[in-house]
């Protein structure tokens, strides 16, 4: 079955695609750190950040529609966490209303914080989407490994990426088999059937894990993962990293003394 892969535009060619995954990872982390550390309501600075990320996205030649659609997926999650902030933050009341006996009020400070959080998370997610859509997952993993991320975690991510599509296929097939036998009946029964499906999926994954391990052991796996260093850090990467860090520092200095 076909799935949309998170790195589906990663085999295109552009300046951004040609960068070493390590420099992209470092740049992304630096960008997110800078965004997160900017005080709230620094709208001008947010605009500057947006200009940077927009320029990089344009350079990468990944379709804009794809990036904007993906970036909106995260907003509901952020809202879920941040929606209560305006009610709790102290300060000048923007407006209030009554629900039965309770009086609820929203503050200006709180609203400002909410908008800042939304803007910051959107900027961060844009940079992450740019990273994952211009870097193949395999080279991203190589990059993480070279940047000294623990091997176990890299392996976990790699297995996850390899098998998540097989698992979704398995779920789809189970659903099809269930639906072709007229899945219906009372709600309680439905729920117990879904429970059985989850259990079956767990057992199947567990057994697959054992078979995969047998296949690894058959090829001499002894608990240490070994990989070849096939990445190439070029002059372009040095320039890119320096430029990004310089720009971020400048923006923050400007913000401090403005």
């Amino acid at each position: 079955m076909k799935h949309s892969f998170i790195d589906q535009y990663s085999n295109r060619d552009s300046l951004i695609h040609r960068l070493d995954p390590r420099s992209k990872l470092v740049a992304t982390l630096a960008f997110i750190a800078a965004v997160a550390l900017t005080p709230s309501a620094g709208w001008l600075v947010y605009c500057l950040y947006f200009i940077i990320i927009a320029a990089l996205i344009l350079l990468s030649r990944v379709p804009l529609l794809y990036i904007s659609r993906r970036s909106l997926v995260i907003i509901p999650f952020v809202l879920l966490v941040a929606i209560f902030i305006p009610f709790f933050k102290e300060g000048e009341v923007a407006f209030g209303f009554n629900i039965w006996a309770w009086h609820l009020s929203l503050t200006h400070n709180g609203l400002q914080l909410l908008w800042s959080i939304l803007a910051k998370s959107w900027l961060s997610i844009l940079s992450l989407i740019l990273l994952t859509s211009t870097t193949g997952f395999a080279s991203l993993l190589k990059g993480l490994e070279q940047l000294r991320m623990p091997r176990v975690m890299v392996m976990l991510l790699s297995f996850m990426y390899r098998y998540i599509f097989l698992l979704t296929d398995e779920v789809m097939r189970m659903k099809q088999a269930r639906d072709s036998r007229n899945f219906g009946g009372k709600r309680l029964r439905q729920m117990s059937i879904v429970g059985n499906m989850i259990g079956t999926l767990f057992i199947r994954s567990y057994e697959r894990g054992e078979r995969v391990y047998a296949a690894m052991v058959s090829r001499g796996f002894d608990g240490h993962s070994r990989t070849l260093d096939r990445l190439h850090f070029s002059r372009l990467d040095t320039c890119f990293i320096t430029a990004i860090i310089l720009v971020l520092v400048c923006i923050n200095l400007f913000n401090l003394y403005y």
Partner: peptide, 17 residues
């Protein structure tokens, strides 16, 4: 030893790996 199901045998992100 080559196992029956290639999805068990091939567990890396790329063919090279």
């Amino acid at each position: 030893l080559v196992f029956q199901n290639p999805d068990d045998q091939l567990f890396s992100p790329t063919v090279f790996d």
